[in-house]
Amino acid sequence: WIARINAAVRAYGLNYSTFINGLKKAGIELDRKILADMAVRDPQAFEQVVNKVKEALQV
């Protein structure tokens, strides 16, 4: 799951650890299995999560 998430978030200019930190700051409580599945099956929803994380990180 970690490898999938890392590959997906790198397309948005983040790395895995920064993304996970941003999830916590944004108050998003999705587990890694769901995030990895979302990255593959629903990229639009995953992009929305990434955008919320970037807002929380102020990137």
Rank of each mutant, 00 (worst) to 15 (best):
R41S: 08
A26P: 01
G13Q: 05
L23W: 03
N15F: 05
I2T: 01
T18W: 04
V50F: 02
N6C: 14
V40Y: 15
E47M: 07
D42G: 04
P43A: 08
R32M: 15
K52T: 11
L30A: 07
K54A: 04
V40Q: 10
A39N: 05
L57S: 06
K24R: 06
I20Q: 05
R10V: 11
L23I: 12
A36N: 02
N6R: 08
I5W: 01
Q58P: 07
I2L: 05
N6M: 03
W1P: 15
M38N: 03
F19V: 01
Y12R: 05
I28N: 03
A26V: 07
F46K: 00
N51C: 10
K54H: 06
I28G: 05
K33G: 09
I5N: 00
A45S: 12
L35P: 00
R32V: 15
W1R: 15
T18I: 11
N15V: 09
R4C: 15
R41K: 10
I34H: 09
Q44N: 10
L35H: 02
E55V: 14
V53T: 04
L35F: 06
K52G: 08
Q48G: 10
K52V: 10
N6E: 15
P43C: 07
N6T: 14
I5C: 02
Q44W: 13
L35Q: 02
D42R: 10
R10M: 09
Q48E: 12
L35R: 01
D42A: 08
D31Q: 14
V50E: 01
S17G: 07
I2Q: 04
N6H: 03
A7D: 15
N21R: 12
Y12H: 07
I5D: 00
N15T: 11
P43M: 07
Q44H: 13
R32L: 15
V53Y: 01
K33D: 04
Q58G: 10
A36S: 10
T18A: 10
K25V: 12
D31H: 15
G22T: 03
T18D: 05
K33C: 13
K54D: 01
N51Q: 06
R10L: 12
L23S: 03
D37E: 10
W1M: 15
N21F: 10
A45C: 11
K25C: 11
E55I: 12
I34V: 08
S17T: 06
F19T: 00
L57V: 07
D42K: 11
D31G: 08
A8C: 04
K52C: 12
Y16L: 04
D31L: 13
F19E: 00
M38L: 11
D37M: 12
R32F: 14
A7C: 13
V50A: 04
A39T: 15
V53S: 07
N15Y: 06
R10Q: 13
Q44A: 13
E29R: 14
W1A: 15
K24E: 08
L57E: 05
V49K: 02
Q44I: 15
N21Q: 12
R41N: 11
A7Y: 06
Q44Y: 07
V53W: 01
L57N: 07
T18V: 09
R32K: 12
K33S: 12
A39Q: 03
I28A: 05
G13M: 03
K52E: 13
N6G: 09
A45I: 12
A7K: 14
R32E: 15
F19H: 00
S17E: 10
A56K: 08
E29T: 08
A7T: 12
A39L: 08
Y16F: 04
N21K: 09
A45Q: 09
Q48H: 15
I28T: 04
W1K: 15
N21A: 14
